[in-house]
Computed example of a mutant assay.
Amino acid sequence: MKKIISIILVLTLSLFMSTLASAASRTEANDYLLGAGDHIQILVFNEPDLSMKLIIDSSGNIMYPLIGQLQLIGKTPNQIAIDIRNRLKDGYLNNPMVTVIMLEFRPVYVFGEVKTPGSYEYQPGLTVEKVIAVAGGFTDRADRNDIDIRRSNDQLLKDVKVTQAIYPGDIVIIDQSFF
């Protein structure tokens, strides 16, 4: 009997932890500020002419049907959905239901002493350690203690730990060891 209760407890705890991790990923995506290179989809329920998929360009502006120019960069998907809903409600549609979905985040870049430097698709929860693994791991000449990150806002973080979070547009730089 104790064995069955233990198994049920472990399964319940596992389910709880996976639900918590999934909620954290959704929260991170909801708090995410859009930038150039992000792929999004705007959906307006029962209005196919107002629904679209797009890649945000460097201007961050789009011309949206009925409401005109819309600034996307620096806003969350939820903020954009609310803006579109409010502007459509103002004389165009009764109670529009608008959703903005992230289709693809802008990439992260790995440069320096990894086996396959290049750009990689961002996923919520990405860390330095994970992006190095995706890039094939360190080369033999890599200095594992000299890892820098250049954020998309040009901020430079020096000598970061492998547990450091990575965000879309970041460049991870792995320096060469001298020995």
Rank of each mutant, 00 (worst) to 15 (best):
T76R: 08
L72N: 01
I67W: 08
P77D: 03
N86S: 06
T99R: 09
Q164H: 15
N95K: 12
A21E: 14
V128A: 06
I56R: 05
I5F: 13
G169K: 04
D140F: 11
V134G: 00
L157E: 11
S58T: 14
I7G: 07
P65R: 13
T116Y: 04
P124Y: 07
A21V: 07
Y109I: 07
G169C: 11
I101G: 04
M1C: 13
R106T: 05
R151N: 14
E28M: 02
I173A: 06
I166N: 07
V44H: 05
G136P: 00
Q71F: 14
S6C: 12
A133Y: 06
N94S: 13
S18M: 09
T27F: 04
G60H: 10
V110D: 03
D175N: 14
R144L: 02
G118Y: 02
L9Y: 10
P107T: 06
L93Q: 04
F178G: 14
S14T: 12
D83T: 12
M97G: 10
L66R: 01
I67R: 03
M63K: 15
F16A: 12
M52G: 06
E129C: 04
I173F: 14
P124M: 04
G125L: 04
G35I: 03
D148L: 05
S119H: 01
I42W: 01
A36E: 12
F178T: 10
L13A: 12
V114H: 01
L156H: 12
S59R: 10
R87A: 02
A142F: 07
E28N: 08
V128H: 01
V128Q: 00
L54P: 00
A133P: 01
N94W: 11
Q155E: 15
Q41E: 15
L93S: 02
Q155F: 14
K75C: 02
Y109T: 03
N61R: 15
L156N: 11
V172L: 13
L88K: 04
K130L: 10
F45S: 04
V162H: 06
I171G: 10
A24Y: 11
K130G: 04
I166Q: 09
V134D: 01
F179G: 05
H39I: 01
V172S: 02
S51Q: 05
L43R: 11
Y64M: 06
V134L: 08
A135N: 02
I84C: 01
F16D: 08
I5H: 12
I55K: 07
V110K: 00
M1P: 13
I82N: 05
Y64E: 03
R106E: 07
N30K: 14
F138N: 05
D57C: 09
A135F: 07
L11W: 11
G136S: 09
V134A: 10
G136A: 08
F178C: 09
P124G: 06
P48T: 06
I173Y: 03
E121C: 05
Q41C: 04
F16L: 14
F179E: 05
Y167G: 03
Y167L: 10
D148Y: 15
V10N: 09
I174S: 00
I42L: 03
I80D: 00
D49K: 10
